[in-house]
Write a protein that binds this DNA or RNA. Sequence first.
RNA 1: GCCUGAGUGGCGAAAUUGGUAGACGCACAGGACUUAAAAUCCUGGGAGGUUCACCCCUCGUGUCGGUUCAAGUCCGACCUUAGGCACCA
Length: 800
Amino acid sequence: MEKINDIEKKWQDYWLNNKCFKAVTGEKDKEPYYILVEFPYPSGAGLHVGHVRSYTAQDVLARVKRMQGYNVLFPMGWDAFGAPAEQYAIKNHIHPKDAVKENIKTFKGQMMSLGFSFDWDREFSTTDPEYYKWTQWQFLQFYKHGMAYKDKKDVNWCPTCKSVLSNEDAAGGVCERCGSKVVQKEKEQWMLRMSNYAEDLLKGLDDTNFAERVKLGQINWIGKSTGAEIDFTIEETNDKLTVYTTRCDTLFGVTFMVVAPEHPILEKLKDIITNMGEVRKYQEYAKSKSAFERVEVNKDKTGVKLEGITVKNPVSGNTVDVFISDYVMMGYGTGAIMAVPAHDQRDYDFAKKYNIPIIEVIEGGDISKEAYTGDGKMINSDFLNGYTNKKDSINRMLEYLKENNLGREKTNYRLQDWIFSRQRFWGEPIPMIYCEKCGWQPMDEKDLPLLLPDVAEYEPTDTGESPLAKITDWVNTTCPCCGGPAKRETDTMPNWAGSSWYFLRFMDSDNDKEFASMDAMKYWQKVNWYNGGMEHTARHLLYARFWVQFLYNIGLVPSKEMIDVRVSHGMVLGPDNQKMSKSKGNVINPDDIVKEYGADTLRTYEMFMGDYTQDVPWSTDSLRGCKRFLDKVERLKSKVNDKTGFTDSLIVLQNKTIKDLDSSLSRMSYNTYISSLMILTNAYDDLDSITKEDYHLLLTLLNPVAPHITEELNESLGYEPLCYEKWPTYDESKLVETEKEIAVQVNGKVRATITINVNDSEEVVKEKALEQENVKRFTEGKEIVKIIVIKGKIVNIVVK
RNA sequence: GCCUGAGUGGCGAAAUUGGUAGACGCACAGGACUUAAAAUCCUGGGAGGUUCACCCCUCGUGUCGGUUCAAGUCCGACCUUAGGCACCA
């Protein structure tokens, strides 16, 4: 036998040269099936063994589906815009374009060496002008339909990286990349009106088959809450101050109000508020804090009482004070709350600190110790007194508020508009032009793509503008509206942009007239099975769904949801059960494994290592076990005899194995898929000889997991390559075993096993059970209450 | 704080609708083959007890209860752990 790596290379070349995995759009004789893995960010670190896990899983699925006669679309591409590529390029002093090209080459070589059955004819990178032309085009559609707008936003600002950071990149109040303290800075930014789609994004989940935990991730992120808006009145001016609450039933317990430091009422009433100086100071203080510090839980509550104004509780008529505090956010609800210290922990903490009275309106807690958030009987609440059910009290209060025109039902979402600008060089340029006379104007669509200029310097500027701002040749242009001098937008898109629609492009990747034709999209319909990391189940998926829903609403895609099943895989941890990282020195490089053990062994092991959706630690010992398994399969070749057909004694197990594999695959239970094959292999190995058909069947079933070695062995038997093979089917009638061993229990404890014939009557089975020596020991001298016989499974004798 | 998973041998883990817990593999131990090693093959194994080999018994799927002829699986309470969200009103 030749060297493993040579054999693997031989078959990789064969598949590539013969385009064995090409997906043909429009193929009528076969049913389409679209399998997708998240296309990777081609980092400098190369492919991770975690990539190998999910790619192999989807590759197994793709290979089986192809054998089952589906027209399988299993594409691969590159998500290559964004900060990491730019940082890498700056650090290594090469153009990001070249860095990306280099990294893609590495990644692709690694994927090739693992034998994934991607259709490489559809490959693209989000950084290709032919691709980002359409990302820009789609942005223009957002703009033209009023879905993109510019707005001043407070953003996380890293003074060292000179860039706006997302909340997650600024976690802990420090820049994830450089560790600098993050500050707040106001910037004009492009926004997409994603919040308009909150309800549709929530409802759309019903039309998908996402894994339950994935759906929950989406639901949490959208964060729907139902409650009420209630109008309070400022006694001195008669101005309305509206609050949002989910607990209007506690309205009689309101003892103060809190507004966010940015609340517009402060400006409006600046002449009436007598301690405005103090208020201004607090506003400054709130602004100086990073978003992280501000939302840090359990920190001390701070605030300032607004002197000179008071509000009236609309139901009790009580007069209460108003405070500003940064525990109330301007971005959610109305930016103002009614505080019920007796029944809300935050309000309670604030009231304790500022000695504000506490009125209990629900019985059951001890308000001298903490806020009581549970259920109970309503007290001190006028018409609500005596209510015991929270829902009823809320409904009664809502009714009252509506009747008296004091408030209304209101639904709120946590989901906010999408900040779509990045002050970066390495992203899709936003195709907008600013003219002093005409304002913001979209570029003419026929002028797309708006190419990133080739420049020597791509480091960010000190001012927070994108490096593009320095390239005056590029920035200065003419207004598409009046033809006068104008300037281009210099911010670029976030790297979520390109990945929000790439799965559509794969359906029609060569199209230079449209981002993808309606015909092609109607043919493929949707992504049947999408797999990716847990870290993307919230945001990437939400952005992609939003993007698709928008395109659907303007008639450009055939369905509102273009992804059917979405599952998320667990991580491959280091041998020490810790997340792999260079600093911990626990990184396993797939290249090393492929070189020493072969791609088939790595693939088999990663499928065998454990529950696909859970994290699993790496074990090189277990990997060797999988190598032994493949070696055993290879050795079986010497047992092949001259007989035709299948070996009689193997037929039941062979049919059972096919059935089990189908079931394992549908449950993503790849580890049991492998173990079933190991059982079959062991059964073959126990015989002196097996037939060519026996062996061919095993190779076919194993092929999706270990495609190279199985192709090689199969070829040596004289068969056509397995990539053209049909998936075997099982015969249910062959699964029925005539004899079976079942357990006999006495009072639920196993006391014996008996061998029964499937045709045995219940009486015969009972008789057999009762005559067992050990059964007699436990039944003798006792009264048999009843005997339960579950056909083909168990006998349980109940005695007293 | 809220939401969601997950707790089964020394380890990774199996166990379609409740029906012989620990399949499959790793590691380990003993043996065979070999001058030797590697590779391979055979045997063993949850813990404890026992007439200590065959058999058999008791306990055993995070803890405590419950339902049932029968519970890893269903119900109730709790503990531990991982992840997600979070002053969201």
